[in-house]
């Protein structure tokens, strides 16, 4: 469980996050939605400690990240898997080496076990044939999937994904969503996903948070999101014709 307690963050006097309070439970995928520039990435980076918020606390199962020293943070981070918006694969390593890297660093497995585990993760994202390629030989969507494989290699307790679906076709998106949802429930991971993808929201949105201009404007799930009376959220949601139609149909 991750608790975010009235976290605020500013850049050069501009408030990007304003007093965000939220709880993310384990075994559940929490989706953070919001317009581009709403502060989703900044919130995620505050949670993992890449940015230090000016105010507020972040608790990992009760452990306060701001009161930890470097060593404790490093220790905690071995329990974290993160997928960056731009994948951030190591371009000096092959795909397989990328996925094996966290295992090389932190597991006590033998080479063959590590390789097997990495191949298993690559298989889960459907890329076992690409193992010897370099990241720059892959499409953007394939890089994303490799990054997911790398993020889950060490069986993390906390998984953070910044827009796992951007740049992917609907079918692959669906697979990725199912993958994230599957491992989250299977291993009881606390998962936070940033997305603008309404398909994801309707598919795996057991817990949805809507961020607008740095405020947490709405919180709920896929079953009540279409019927909310939050104006900002409705403007955001029903900018898409598809979603509009879905709502009309559900009302009928």
């Amino acid at each position: 469980m991750i608790e975010v307690l009235s976290v605020s963050k500013q850049f050069n006097g501009q408030e990007v996050l304003k007093e965000i309070t939220a709880t993310f439970r384990n075994g559940e995928v929490s989706l953070i939605i919001g317009q581009s520039g709403a502060g989703k990435t900044v919130l995620l980076k505050c949670i993992v400690g890449l940015f230090t918020p000016e105010k507020g606390k972040i608790l990992y199962d009760g452990r306060d990240i701001s009161s930890m020293d470097k060593k404790e943070i490093r220790h905690l981070r071995q329990e974290i898997g993160m997928l960056f918006q731009n994948s951030a694969l190591f371009d000096s390593m092959s795909v397989l080496e990328n996925v094996m890297f966290p295992l090389d660093m932190f597991s006590s497995m033998t080479y063959n076990e590590r390789r097997k585990r990495a191949m298993f993760c690559l298989d889960r994202v459907g890329l076992s044939e690409a193992q010897y390629k370099n990241p720059d030989e892959l499409s953007g969507g394939m890089q994303k999937r490799v990054a997911i494989a790398r993020a889950i290699a060490l069986e993390p307790k906390y998984l953070f994904c910044d827009e796992p679906n951007s740049g992917l076709d609907p079918q692959t998106s669906l697979k990725i969503d199912e993958l994230i949802h599957g491992i989250t429930t299977e291993f009881g991971i606390t998962t936070i996903v940033n997305t603008h993808d309404m398909n994801s929201v309707m598919g795996i949105g057991d817990h949805v948070l809507y961020l607008a201009n740095g405020n947490l404007a709405w919180e709920g799930n896929k079953d009540n999101i279409l019927n909310s009376d939050n104006e900002l959220l409705n403007n955001f949601l029903f900018s898409s014709d598809l979603v509009k139609k879905v709502k009309e149909m559900s009302l009928k």
Binding site: R74, H75, R77, Q78, I80, M82, F84, N86, A88, F106
Partner: peptide, 17 residues
């Protein structure tokens, strides 16, 4: 380049110095 493409952040997130 590793810094601006967030590869260094990715290392840090994994708990690597």
């Amino acid at each position: 380049t590793m810094r601006v493409t967030q590869q260094i952040d990715a290392l840090e997130i994994m708990g690597v110095n």
